[in-house]
Nucleic acid binder design. Sequence first.
DNA 1: TTTTGAGTTGTTCGA
DNA 2: GTCGAACAACTCAAA
Length: 492
Amino acid sequence: MTDVAATDRARAARIVWFRDDLRLADHPALLEAASAGPVVCVYVLDEESERLRPLGAASRWWLAGSLRALDRSLMEFGGRLTLLRGAAASVIPRLARQLRASEVSWNRRYDRAGRRVDDAVEQRLAADAVIARTFQGSLLYEPATIRSGAGSSIKVFTPFWRKAKTLGEPRAARGKPAWIAFLPDVPSDRLDDWRLEPSGPDWASGLRAHWVPGESGAHERLATFLETGLAGYATLRDRPDRLHTSRLSPHLHFGEVSPFQLWHAARMAAETSGGKAASSADVEKFSAELGWREFSYHLLHDVPDLAQRNFQPRFDNFPWRSDQAAAMAWRKGLTGYPLVDAGMRELWATGWMHNRVRMVAASFLVKHLLLDWREGEVWFWDTLVDADPANNPASWQWIAGSGADAAPYFRIFNPVLQGERFDPAGDYVRRWVPELARLPNDHIHCPWSASPQVLAQAGITLGRDYPTPLVDHGVARQRALAAFASLKLPPA
DNA sequence: TTTTGAGTTGTTCGA
DNA sequence: GTCGAACAACTCAAA
């Protein structure tokens, strides 16, 4: 290679392929590429590659906002985000040829369909002598790096997380690139043409009211959490009537903030906090939530079809019921159990549900209604702004009992007790189930137990203004225990 | 190899 | 009202 050719090569553009890492800070692929020469930042809407799970409606809404935010951030550096649609294995190599790019860089992803696409892209680039550079940006510990003493995959969270922590502190978070030089005039789709946002009925108003997709929104949310949520997090995170969860899940899913940033930010905040101090238990608990995300990806790596197949095969024989009316009532928040209904309505209105309530609502579908966990998983996938290919199925399987390190079969949440314990004044229920707002506290989680006078005073006729319970808790509990007992292996 | 202790998030019942 | 045991037995991870 002559000196001239080498110089050309050094000046050739590098493509940075953004995926679930829609940020500028702590973005290893971008940092490396921007330090080497001019870049083209591209996002590919891939609705063509086989097996890629189509985004849910709430995720599409979020993606639109996040891409718009990323584009604005790049404008501050003098560039734009290039939007392209099509099968990535065609689109990325074609772009590389058009731009005579020398390299394409991206942060690795970990779902099977995504990995297959990335492998195909890498192969086609190699055929054109374009270098693919991949980086670790989205997980603290990549799948298959954490193994048991015997070298096998770990299937229980606690030893998994203990082992992870013996590997040392996650690397420090890095900043944004100091500067980015852009290759000019790269053609791009218009975001509006992708129709990611609702066009008919505008169901996204609740989402807009609750969320600010994008890196700035993520950091604002993080700052608020560190100031007001982290202190007491270990216990108050369970309270849906309080604002003590981080609400960072969608930002983390879309990579607007990295787990490395969160890990260190929580520690830093606990050390330097001015007012209410976060305890080490608070920080550990928050870190463990990041750990559960890591664990879910670790499981997804072992079982790529985690959203379809029971992790424990014996659940393949589980006697799930089929009951479209019950499923519909659950989705609409009309089960007659206020905490469940509040959660399902919060989900519909905001694209998000408090973690404690997710457990109760999911347990209700699986154990009270005996409906297949996959039915719930699909609904959450469509409606959650934080819908995640690892967390969503892993959590559903955990609650169903079919997962790794699963909830024991006898753990059947009582929606009334859970409500009284975690929403003691009924504030959460009143917010999302306003027709019950005038019920006194001692009946807010069990309206059917109120006397006719109390119901009348609250302006409620059960069955008209609010449903009678879809199933009786005691009856449903016994039915679930019997169904789970049928899974027991016959004696050898 | 065998053994041992442990395993996110709960509820109910009876003393 | 409080408290401990039962709810199955199993699988996993490490010693």
